[in-house]
Design a protein around this nucleic acid. Structure first.
Lengths: 125, 125
DNA sequence: TGCAATATATCTGAAATCGATATATCATAA
DNA sequence: TTATGATATATCGATTTCAGATATATTGCA
């Protein structure tokens, strides 16, 4: 079928910036990050699992985030049960620096975009 | 090989908005549009021929721009010579409306992006 | 007992990107 | 004269990206 219709479209860099900025507020994990981006953008931005997990893996390889596995023990299940696993991501100092440079780049980008909207002499119609 | 390194990346919608805004200042043609985008963005945005011409064709099919061919007569060549051809694009009323809706969408987009940068409560670190 | 939500992760068909290529004219300099 | 670079339009194709579907598994609730 492929409805497609509305294509908000985020570039790779923009998606990375958003994920890093979410993590700059504190450690989080994949599912929560995805939900938070959707909620905070009122469903305008949707970063699904198929984009998010490869991205998080890339960020980890680049040393921008560090990770820890959490073993979620079920209260009702037997103590022997393996339980659900949750992978936490936290921003590294290198990741913080990357975020800041992404924000700077974004602001340059936005300024240029606005200059095109405004026209060559800033004249409005 | 694929150097790639720096990926400024514009989404389709962003590229369309920029091209339409350039045309809102007056009729132009492919090569000039490409050069103007590069110049006005100080080489930050590069919309090459392989992206621009398919886009212009699409805009033409959608009735957002109208086109005219110009026959460029060479001064020194024989009058019989066919000469170079230049295809002019001008924004249609429908294109003007599209541009305005693209600008509105861009501003909504930018507002959300800024809200992620600012954090959930607008608190700066 | 089944269903929805939580949770991580990959697969895959379709689409987008962008350098390279193709074609052709024009101006300038070697 | 001829070669080079700029002008000018347009397509090709290898690689990358996208986003839905799929896979696996746990948890909570009706």
């Amino acid at each position: 079928m492929s409805a497609k219709e509305s294509a908000p479209q985020l570039t790779q860099d923009q998606t990375e910036m958003i994920v890093l900025s979410v993590l700059s507020e504190g450690p989080s994990y994949g599912y929560a990050i995805s939900k938070q981006i959707a909620a905070r953008s009122e469903e305008t931005f949707r970063v699904g699992a198929s984009q998010l997990y490869p991205l998080l893996t890339k960020l980890e390889k680049q040393g921008l985030v560090s990770t820890d596995w959490e073993e979620i023990k079920s209260a009702s299940a037997e103590p022997e049960a393996p339980g659900r696993k949750r992978k936490w991501y936290r921003l590294s100092p290198k990741g913080e620096r990357r975020l800041e440079s992404r924000i700077a780049a974004h602001q340059r980008f936005t300024a240029i975009m606005n200059s095109f909207i405004a026209g060559p002499s800033g004249a409005a119609s």
